[in-house]
Write a protein that binds this DNA or RNA. Structure first.
Lengths: 169, 169
DNA sequence: AGCTAATATATGACAAGTCATGTATTCTGC
DNA sequence: GCAGAATACATGACTTGTCATATATTAGCT
């Protein structure tokens, strides 16, 4: 059926259907929904931001860390932490000291206030992970993590490797 | 082994390993990598932004659309399009006219310049989707899309439904 | 020691996304 | 036909993320 004879509603529905199976277009909304949900959980658990929660969690689990360590664990650009940490320090959540051994690094540690904020949020966030485990079986979660690994690898491939096949067409 | 006897490198490695299977923490980096890759492809295909590309693609596939239509197809907040479209209009990529039938709606259409920009970018972006189909089988992509549907459903659930089980613990 | 390279952090500029709120228009029920 | 509800859009304020670039410190080589 030629496009011109379709109603607008039909065109939109066709487009939505096609986009539903487009992995690229699914990523932003899935991520946005995840972040929105996390924000709501954290709102109920003391009002931490997502970035703050991740920092407190990592520090609580892996002890004193530098900015680069945190960035590498969280797979984010270090600039994000470089900007977020001073605000967390002003709130009393973390200590930031220059490393005595390597004067370039900052050593970030949890304060007592930070530990309390973490312990307040942790059980709520654990409930979120528990809820995910009710929605997906362990095998499914493992498979999903595997897909994420492969997606990461795909997204990080150099352009040249993706474009070299019949790129002149 | 108690945490205090681990080296810092061991603590970081343990934390990274654990985070690798945490779906929540995988979403941001996977999405960021996807967006970064899309940006690079678009840079090579005329310099469109991701938002611009999506708008041109939708308009090209589904004809004249309102802001709300575009937002619903793309699963984003309408404010994003409300802000992006005037800039696209200034670049000559789209026309924006108030709908004659419904004076609240804007009718967004592709201009000739917009159509050319789309046709320049489209083959490159198609190569990206083709490359994805080389990295994943059709069955895997179908399964992945199914997981996204279920993740969407999980993320959009009201908090109360996720917290009501042993939430007092 | 001293020069160069590498590393760790800070910061400016930006893209993409959210939510809340305000305004104009249309729809609905009486 | 009008009051109030609903809808479409605009806009301000914010979060999360990127990249590029500058600066300070350490590491390595001679």
């Amino acid at each position: 059926m030629p496009k011109s004879t379709q109603t607008k509603a039909e065109r939109i529905r066709a487009r939505r259907t096609r986009e539903a199976v487009n992995i690229f277009s699914r990523m932003p909304s899935a991520y946005a929904a995840s972040r929105s949900q996390a924000t709501k959980f954290l709102q109920r658990a003391g009002g931490l931001s997502v970035v703050e929660w991740r920092v407190l969690w990592d520090l609580s689990e892996a002890g004193p860390l530098s900015i680069r360590d945190l960035a590498s664990i969280q797979r984010v650009d270090h600039s994000q932490l470089s900007r977020a940490l001073p605000a967390m320090w002003r709130k009393g959540l973390v200590n930031m000291e220059r490393d005595e051994v390597d004067g370039r690094q900052m050593s970030i540690t949890l304060t007592e206030v930070g530990r309390q904020a973490y312990e307040k949020a942790a059980p709520i966030m654990k409930q979120r992970r528990d809820a995910l485990r009710r929605a997906f079986t362990p095998e499914e979660l493992k498979q999903l993590a595997g897909y994420f690994d492969r997606l990461d690898a795909f997204f990080c491939q150099p352009l040249s490797e993706l474009l070299n096949e019949d790129s002149q067409a």
